[in-house]
Each structure stands twice: as C-alpha cells, then as structure tokens.
Simulated scan of single mutants.
Amino acid sequence: MKFPCRLEKFLSHVAEMPRSKVKINIKKGLVTVNGNVVKKGDIQVTPADHITFDGNRLEYLGLRYYMLNKPQGYVCANSDELHPTVFDLIEEPNLKDFHVAGRLDIDTTGLVLLTNDGDWSHQITSPKKQKFKTYVLESRDELTEEALTQLEQGVELHGERQATLPAKAELIDKFALRLSICEGKYHQVKRMLAAVGNQVVELHRENIAGIELDPTLAKGEYRPLTDEEISIINAN
C-alpha cells in the first residue's frame, strides 16, 4: 500500500472490510482520524495518523516477509478452487496484498518466501537479476557425470528456443543431486532432468538467493525473516 492514501482504502485494507461496508461505517460516525470523527472517506491518511474504528485503533503493519516450509499438496497462489494454498498455512492479519516470491509446484516441497514488498520480490523473480535457487532432487535413474556436465553447461528444454543458463550441480549420491539454477522457467528442474534422459521423483527447495530454509521449521510451519535475511536479497 502506498501512502498517503484515501481513508476508505486504508480501512478496507487494514480492517479487511468491503468498500461498501467502509462507507456505511464512516457515515455512521464510527471512524476517527487523530481524535476527530470523520464522515468522508476521501481524505488522505498516512501510517502516522491515529485512526480508529468503533473505538479500536487500526495500524498499518508495513512491509512484512515470511519463509514457509511448504509441504506437498499446496499451491503457491492467493486462492484456488481445487487445492489449499500456502496462504492457508499463514496465520497473520492483512494478507490480501501478499504474494509468493518464487513459486513451487504443488508436489514440490521446501522454501517459499511470502511478502507484500513488490520491489523486494522483484529482485528474486526478475530474470535479469539471475538469483540462484537451490534444489535437492531424487531421480528415477542413476545420475551420471555426463548428465551433471550437461546440466551445468545448459540443456535444451522441450519447446524452448534457447538452452538453459549455466547451473551448479553437486552429486549427493547415485540418485540424489543438489542443483542451483538462476532462471524460473515452467517446471524447469523437472524439464532439465528430462532433457538428460532422467526423471525427478522428489523435489525440495532449500535456498533462494542466499536465504536458507530454516532447518527448525517442520513442513507447514513458517516464521518472519530476520533483518539480515531480508537484506541478503538486495546485497546479492
């Protein structure tokens, strides 16, 4: 939310109230700004203003950042008619302006970042920024040195005109690989394995642009990012 903004917009966002209801409550005299009852919703307000609704102060919570250990079965969307979303796991107020910075497929687990800071998330998702995301995968077939070399140099994906950008590949064991990529093409890791004649069985993301998934978070748990973690994105 950008400030200054209309009182109507502020109330709708912070109190999570439909605009039609906001207008009714303002006309009823239930809203004050800096101690004064306000009967018009078009006045401009900022977070520094003391705004109350029905005697309770409303405060803008500002820019917020969370990490989530995503389990399988959840989609990275604000709403979905068929599946639960990652936002169903976040018990925080005023999430309607939030979005996922770097989505995961429904069957992929691991690190998801959620924020209402569009400029910050742009640093992660913009192809021009080339921020690495690191995944651990289990494969159907044994991973060969030849396949690792191909993945690191770049492979041609089905339906794509250009090969993938150079990646970082670290063999964990014969059927497990740590892969870091700086792009975000559709189903990219799965398609990269397919391009070298293999198949992903399980996929888990453990790092985004230097932010590590907190090992103390169980699947489905989340926590706010630390100031240091937030600053990593702009520093890298």
Rank of each mutant, 00 (worst) to 15 (best):
P18R: 04
P18S: 00
R19W: 02
R19V: 03
R19L: 11
K21L: 04
V22E: 00
V22M: 00
K23N: 01
I24E: 02
I26P: 04
K27I: 00
K28M: 03
K28V: 02
K28E: 11
G29R: 14
L30G: 04
V31M: 12
V31C: 06
T32V: 04
T32E: 15
T32K: 14
N34F: 13
N34T: 04
N34L: 08
N34P: 04
G35K: 09
N36P: 08
V37D: 08
V38M: 15
V38W: 12
K39V: 09
K40F: 05
G41V: 06
I43R: 11
V45F: 02
V45P: 00
V45T: 02
T46E: 08
P47L: 00
P47Y: 01
D49G: 08
D49H: 14
I51E: 05
T52P: 03
D54M: 14
D54K: 15
G55S: 12
R57H: 07
L58N: 01
L58Q: 01
E59Q: 14
E59T: 13
Y60K: 03
Y60A: 00
Y60D: 04
L61C: 01
G62P: 15
L63Y: 05
Y65S: 10
Y65E: 13
M67E: 11
L68M: 11
L68I: 12
L68P: 14
P71C: 10
Y74P: 02
Y74C: 00
V75P: 12
C76H: 06
S79T: 06
E81W: 05
E81K: 13
L82Q: 13
L82W: 03
H83N: 06
P84T: 05
T85D: 07
V86H: 13
L89P: 09
L89W: 14
I90Q: 14
E92R: 15
P93T: 06
P93Q: 10
K96Q: 09
K96E: 07
K96I: 11
K96N: 05
D97S: 05
F98E: 05
F98T: 07
F98N: 06
H99F: 12
A101F: 08
A101G: 11
A101M: 09
G102M: 09
G102S: 10
R103I: 07
L104H: 06
D105N: 08
D105Y: 06
I106E: 01
D107F: 07
T109W: 06
T109Y: 04
G110Q: 05
L111N: 03
V112W: 12
V112I: 14
L114S: 07
